[in-house]
């Protein structure tokens, strides 16, 4: 377990930018900003006409850390308190879950909730609940 500092202002600024990105993508491309849909559209494209903008968006996303370095002089911290096998197993489970659940924290949690979509509200409650239970079990039942 790694202790992390409470960062309300920086996290709020980050959240506002995430929201602005979602609004910007809707205003320009008319699309919801869902990381799951963007990644799935790149690794398993259903139409070639959507591949280009999704790749451009993906390239923009991965330049985010460099933009933060330019602005603040620091790269974002990536502290991983879990083992490599847990990352790999967790990654596969996340991939299966978001595909069946049609979205993740950005698609359902931000864009869908902002539209007051009943599906997205239900999905967000479901995954926040199961994430909380999983963390509790790993840290306090198995690990405790």
């Amino acid at each position: 377990m790694i202790e992390t500092a409470f960062t309300p202002y920086q996290s709020l600024a980050g959240g506002v930018l995430i929201g602005l990105a979602a609004v910007f993508l809707m205003a320009t491309m008319g699309r919801v900003f869902g990381a799951t849909g963007i990644l799935a559209g790149i690794v398993a494209p259903s139409s070639s006409s959507d591949l280009g903008w999704r790749l451009a968006l993906f390239l923009g996303m991965i330049t985010g850390p460099a933009a933060m370095l330019l602005l603040t002089g620091e790269m974002p911290a990536v502290q991983v308190p879990v083992s490599m096998p847990m990352l790999a197993v967790g990654g596969v489970i996340v991939g299966v879950g978001v595909t069946y659940g049609s979205g993740c924290t950005s698609g359902h949690g931000v864009c869908g909730m902002a539209r007051l979509s009943p599906r997205s509200i239900a999905a967000t409650l479901a995954f926040m609940f199961s994430t909380g239970v999983t963390v509790y079990v790993i840290r306090h039942v198995i690990g405790g």
Partner: peptide
């Protein structure tokens, strides 16, 4: 799917 996603996110 969303419940499964959360398990992976928690791991």
């Amino acid at each position: 799917g969303s419940l499964v996603f959360g398990v992976g996110w928690g791991i």
